[in-house]
Design a protein around this nucleic acid. Structure first.
Lengths: 253, 253
DNA sequence: AATATTAATTCCGATATTCGGAACAAAAGG
DNA sequence: CCTTTTGTTCCGAATATCGGAATTAATATT
């Protein structure tokens, strides 16, 4: 492995939290010697990953290009987007699409609602697989071995006061969700926001994404969730089908 | 500067042209020793910039997050987008927003038309400042010294058969455009596509972006362009104003 | 105006890190 | 079963990185 490269890219990661940083600030945050930081920043600048805006450094425009390319190349997203828009029309709620990346879930597409009270999720946001409806639906429907390994390995860190941190409770929820074919979460990732999520499968029958409807907790009572689930399952089924998925006991095609 | 970091990031740049690459292919393209490529790829993977998809490597999902952050943080884009949509409604043509990044122009936002014949531009695309209406409008309205330096330094490489490669011709076009307050191009960046572009200024009176209307060459006759120009100028003026621009002989506010 | 303070940049010798050839392993193809 | 191709590990040599210290630049203070 290449230590310097990793360090430089970790340095770049700082800019996901901070919009602008001076050299000084980077030194403080990374605790690396100033000269080293300086060198790395220079390197990141020549490649367009960072740029200097007056005093401070910012993310460079190269990243724009990369981001767009990744988006375009994600085919789940391509087929899901129009269907997500339909779902938004039917439910008038925000719809999210999440894919798995290592031990995390990443929000790759969203369709917003016109409701005045909204839950704002940023595309590119990451969340652990155990928290939130959409991430957990990925965890629920992954292969048994992979799931077991993950559950043994993962440390359950609370994000909000309602994040599930008890391993047994999590396992129960997963098993239940597997039977029902959907997951529900209340304020696990952000306070006062709830979500219902269903899995999307590819041609191999593997979960490749989670589709969810998100909204304010007070609106998401069980009677309302029951109305949402068949709609979600229907749309997720359409997306799965478009990806070449054929079987599926849990999915109504 | 940090040689390894730069090399690794240049390696990553390969993936803007190729969607997938095996280790072998990267070795051939970069002409670097296999072991070095291997190491760099490993480093890029641990940081999520690359991922292995079966045989080959692809851009990782980290880049999605970075791309979205850059987009969100670009405030020209934020204020321009709604106005661009209005312009699309008024003209029923595709509208592009371009900013300067070093010696290049980058497309940062687009609004597409419903016309059957379209010109497709990808967000994140780069173009030299001398070619195409929108890039050249940035060149036209940058500071005199900067412009002079650029013109002395730049090598004019043809992109299509109609790309301007004669320095004198380019200078004349720039001077003319400066008087008129807009730039026109025909098939300079892509065959059969034309564009009209106007500048957007910030609070300091510096050009920060170019706004253009793009369409198929046959539709962009001079009579039609004359209709477009006032509309473009009006909208660009609105955006400039929103960015704090006050003066402006060339802009009708 | 002179001085103090803070941050950015350059220098340079020590050394840890990267380099890259070669050997090895694994998988694919004949 | 052997050959070929691609991916991965090893290890000594070399060089690129490291980081302290000095220098420069910019800003604040007396």
């Amino acid at each position: 492995m290449n230590k310097t490269v990793v360090k430089a890219l970790e340095l770049l990661q700082l800019f996901t939290t901070y919009e602008q940083l001076t050299l000084q600030e980077i030194v403080q945050l990374t605790k690396l010697p100033k000269t080293s930081v300086f060198r790395m920043v220079q390197s990141l600048m020549t490649t367009g990953f960072l740029k200097k805006e007056g005093e401070a450094y910012e993310l460079g425009l190269s990243l724009l290009q990369f981001g767009c390319l990744v988006t375009e190349r994600l085919d789940v997203r391509k087929v899901a987007l129009p269907i997500m828009k339909q779902l938004r029309e039917e439910t008038n709620e925000a719809v999210n699409l999440v894919v798995k990346d290592g031990d995390e879930a990443i929000y790759v597409e969203k369709v917003e609602t016109s409701e005045p009270v909204r839950v704002y999720t940023r595309v590119g946001r990451r969340a652990p697989l155990y928290a939130g409806a959409c991430p957990r639906v990925l965890l629920t429907f992954m292969s048994i071995e992979e799931q077991k390994k993950y559950l043994d390995r993962v440390e359950l860190i609370p994000i909000t006061s309602k994040t599930i941190v008890n391993r047994e409770e999590l396992k129960n929820l997963i098993n239940e969700a597997k039977k029902k074919g959907y997951t529900v979460s209340h304020s696990e990732l952000a306070d006062y926001s709830s979500a219902v999520a269903v899995p999307i499968f590819n041609h191999e029958g593997k979960v490749v994404a989670g589709l969810s409807v998100v909204g304010p907790e007070n609106r998401f009572q069980s009677s309302y969730i029951e109305q949402l689930v068949p709609k979600l399952k229907h749309k997720a089924g359409q997306i799965s089908k478009a990806l070449g998925f054929i079987g599926g006991k849990d999915v109504e095609l």
